[in-house]
Amino acid sequence: MTTKIPARKNLKNISAYVAGKPIEEVQRELGLTRIIKLASNENPYGYSQLAKKAMLAEMDQTAYYPEGMAPALAEKLAVKLDTKKENIIIGNGSDEIIRLLTRSYIAENDEVIMPDVTFPRYETNVLIEGGSPVLVPLIDGVHDLDSMYKAITDKTKMIVICNPNNPTGTIIEKAKLEAFMSKVPKHILLIIDEAYYEYVNDEEYLETIPYLEAHPNLVILRTFSKIYGLASLRIGYGIMQPSIIEELVKVKDAFNTNRLAQAAAVASLEDDAFVKYCANQNQLGKVYLQTELSKMGLEYFPSHANFLMIKLNQPGKEIFEGLLKQGIIIRSGHLLGYDDTIRVSIGSQEENEEFIQALKIILN
């Protein structure tokens, strides 16, 4: 009999992250050749051809370790974002920076305030460090900032905001977020995850980078995984005060981002036309899906990202399984905190149309 070696007690009630089903897995399970994946908010238009050229050129350097702090990428980002290079840290996806923040700042019983529901890795990383997540329910899919502020105690070390929020796609009104930022005590880290920043085209969305100097506790997270289409390369970044970065570097892996990812990200920042095209196509796809869903009598959260969370009158898991049999992968709401919903990434026009037709078949 094999003896199970006990792991850390902090892991007892933590489950592994459940990602959207990969295309290859569905092909193996169902024997299908054509699969449409609308589960993980990936870019259906791929990635910049400038990034491809940069990766091919960098291939010859594969035998050599990358620069640990990705200085060329940090400098390029600083120019593009009108901030200082010293304010930027590059991560193995922005989710690594979340992990670095909790590892650096969260001790046993420290509290971290976050919305319920949101991206689940915030809560998981807090629990791993022995901290206590304080979950504040959303109101109509939007952060309840008043209740989040009231939840602050002498144990609060962090507050996490996801804007646009995943999985609802909603944003916080500019004036409300600005007022909240001003009220949060400066000894509490305020982390704003803006993974879907480039998709937002609403005047009510707050540009947070100009607030860095006035709010030394502010941490902004962004990624190359979404609109830039570099999801498999795992590269994101954080914008914050150098004093915070100094602490994160202490617990960061020495070579956390690879050469190809760094080169691709640098090149992607040169291709504004590609980003604009993807944002425009996403907006067209979103309008199409919203129009068709409304015709079907279905409601959805007002999304400012590249996905929609659709409200149903039946378990989302049933719809997920029905669509899967037709070769369409989406996300069931039961994995995201809303049982009677599904979350669907906005695909190409052809993919969107196939999704709508398949959904009509299932619902009828």
Rank of each mutant, 00 (worst) to 15 (best):
P185R: 05
I239M: 13
Y196I: 01
L212T: 10
I227W: 05
E247R: 13
I209C: 10
V200N: 03
I245L: 05
H187S: 05
I191L: 03
L218M: 10
A175R: 15
L233C: 10
S243Q: 15
L230Y: 12
L190Q: 05
R234C: 15
L260C: 07
A179H: 12
V184E: 00
L177T: 04
T223V: 13
Y205G: 05
D253W: 06
I191S: 01
I192G: 00
I220P: 01
E213M: 07
M240D: 01
R259W: 12
I239N: 13
Q262E: 15
E203S: 13
F180W: 00
E246A: 12
L233F: 13
I245Y: 00
Y196E: 03
A214G: 02
L230D: 04
L206M: 12
L212H: 08
Q241Y: 10
L189T: 04
P216R: 05
Y197S: 04
A214M: 07
D253V: 02
E178Y: 10
D253C: 08
K226Q: 10
L190C: 09
I209V: 14
E213S: 14
M240Q: 04
T208S: 15
V219M: 06
I188A: 00
A214T: 08
D202K: 03
L218Y: 08
E203D: 14
P185Y: 03
E198L: 14
N217W: 06
T257C: 13
T223N: 06
E246Q: 11
E203F: 12
V184Q: 03
R234E: 15
Y199I: 04
V200D: 02
P242L: 11
M240N: 02
L190S: 06
L218S: 04
I220E: 02
P216C: 03
P242N: 09
F255I: 09
R259Q: 14
I220H: 08
L189R: 04
L190I: 03
H215S: 14
I245E: 02
M240A: 00
E178N: 08
Y196F: 13
Y237P: 03
E213C: 04
H215P: 09
A231Q: 10
S243G: 13
H187D: 14
S232E: 15
D193M: 12
K186S: 02
Y228Q: 11
E246K: 06
H215M: 12
N201A: 15
Y205A: 10
N217V: 06
I245F: 01
L206K: 07
L248A: 02
H187T: 07
Y199C: 08
Y211V: 01
K252T: 04
T208W: 08
Q241R: 12
E198H: 14
E207T: 06
E204D: 14
K226W: 06
F180H: 01
R234D: 15
